[in-house]
Design a protein around this nucleic acid. Structure first.
Lengths: 188, 188, 188, 188
DNA sequence: CATGAATGAGGTTTCATTCAT
DNA sequence: TATGAATGAAACCTCATTCAT
């Protein structure tokens, strides 16, 4: 996954393919024709296959990228928000808005074994888990998060989805649901 | 769709195919080979195609069946539960546990136009909407549901999903999430 | 391989595909497009794939058929010819004329493991070996075959090939070469 | 084909590619990926294509090289061996051991027209034919070769092949077959 | 009426060849 | 000049749908 040395153009192609894959997967699931992804990335199928030897390789690379993004989001929230509750709220909202759940269900079935094996991914996954643990603990200590909520609950809530007509996006509708959820998590 | 007159065995075939389709769709999405569904139903592909002229017809018949089930669930909850809040809670819990959201996203993209057109379905859909309206209004009147929550919010929450490893089912985990949502909906 | 119960038309298709494969393999090697074989057999690719799940399955079925033919040839020669030398001569000539060597090199690399495993094939192979052993022993006893020639030599000679412009066939040229070999095998 | 003026390193590249091609063709036929040949030669595909504009050009260059080798072998045998029979025997043995037949069938179909056209090759071919003619005539004169054998028979026998498991080589088995053949050619 | 065989269009993957680095 | 990345045509294989049994 590391792609140590890669010519500049190849590198850029790789990135574009990954971005294309991620967005196509989110929109239409993983069963999308490879040509579709190649087109969206602006490369030929051949290039796609040179970079990712088969569909599963692409999926699992996409999983990598998206998990890394997740770790980023968690870290940023933790760093920038004034308190643990705010960090948790922001992180969860981002996860739901970005469709973490949809990507998970699209990606995991295929990539599961690879994800477990890839050392780089194990680390990222560890980072996320770690940050969730800290946010949860601190928020409880602050008295802002219900005492009976644990990190496992938060992990589940990250993957929350509500049905949206495909193609349409309803950020406000999602926000309302996230608000309800947060309200349900808040200690009184 | 009505299947007015059908010999007993044909009727039974139809039902078995529908049940098979519903469960396969839930497990693996709508992109499953028709043979798979036929096998699960214990009939040949030919039989499946005799009953449902093409994939879309099957999907939309499945949508019908599932929507009808939903109306049933709503009506039963309304009838059997002691108050509006309990009915709402039970109905939402059932929807989430039964994977309404998953089926919606699997089925709607293909069946959307048909669903809009089919008079029988329009009626069922009306029933559900109606019951949700009543539950919401009554629960607010009872002072158990937050004043700022409307039927549209409930409709969204019906389709709540959280990611579960495919094949595995975690009813308790889902229950915890539903509890959190309900807690977030409750008026204080 | 046995294909116990097969509808009449399916059976006939299977046979035609096998015959087509055999002749195409002989002419152009095993790397021929599947479509080519399907066309020659007068069926669609789908049918070919329904009968033989992938290229290797087809190749190894072809191996079966051709080995069975070989056993037949050996048995017939042994039965019909007046003495062991005549049987041996006829069998070798047939093998070379029919291009056993060409088929072997086309087929074996791919089908080797299957050939070793298939019980039916093991038996046929045993029959051939057995007949060669008998022919060799008897011909030596008759004083027609050189004493220092063993069954392994005969087995090698079965796969004799000489280069022929592809497409063209030169039965007489082959016959001359076989005559020379036989002359070299004959005891004096 | 001559590659009149070529820098030393380019020359060496050309030779390595040719050698690689020859050995790959012998092992796996001409349908091998170009990358395979480039790898074996230790150069990039680009280099291969710079030297040989397309696959056919490479094949026919390989044909050239191998035919030249053949002429060499014939000349050496003629020069070094004490009599015509010994020369013939040695030449035939070398041809069979070196797999002339295999290369012929791999190369000729593609390169045929070029071989016919290339003046250099016409000459080499002439040399070989000439030497075979001489060996044959002389051996018959010596009373060592059967009277009814002609140069055309020898030409066919040069391309003799027996099936060998790919990868494995059985020089002794081949030797035994060649011995039988020579025994069949010998006058008594 | 039920079945499963046949078909071929369409998605997947490979590889010859070209071309930017 | 050597390299290996990009491309797309062509091969592989699957599966929706039709149709003979």
């Amino acid at each position: 996954m590391a792609a140590e040395e890669l010519r500049a153009d190849a590198r850029s192609n790789r990135d574009q393919i990954l971005a294309a894959a991620l967005s196509v997967f989110r929109e239409r699931g993983v069963d999308v024709p490879m040509k579709e992804i190649a087109d969206r990335a602006g490369v030929g199928v051949g290039t796609l296959y040179r970079r990712f030897p088969d569909r599963d390789a692409l999926i699992s690379a996409a999983a990598s990228a998206y998990l890394a993004g997740l770790a980023d989001a968690a870290a940023t929230a933790w760093r920038e928000e004034p308190d643990a509750w705010a960090a948790l709220a922001r992180f969860l909202r981002e996860c739901v808005q970005k469709g973490v759940g949809g990507l998970s269900s699209a990606i995991e079935p295929v990539a599961h074994s690879r994800i477990r094996a890839d050392p780089e991914l194990i680390e990222v996954r560890g980072t996320v888990t770690d940050l969730i643990n800290r946010m949860t603990a601190r928020a409880k200590a602050d008295g802002t998060l219900r005492e009976d909520i644990g990190p496992a609950d938060i992990a589940k809530l990250m993957t929350l989805q509500i049905y949206t007509r495909p193609g349409e996006s309803h950020p406000e509708a999602i926000d309302r649901v996230v608000d309800i959820m947060l309200n349900g998590l808040r200690a009184r």
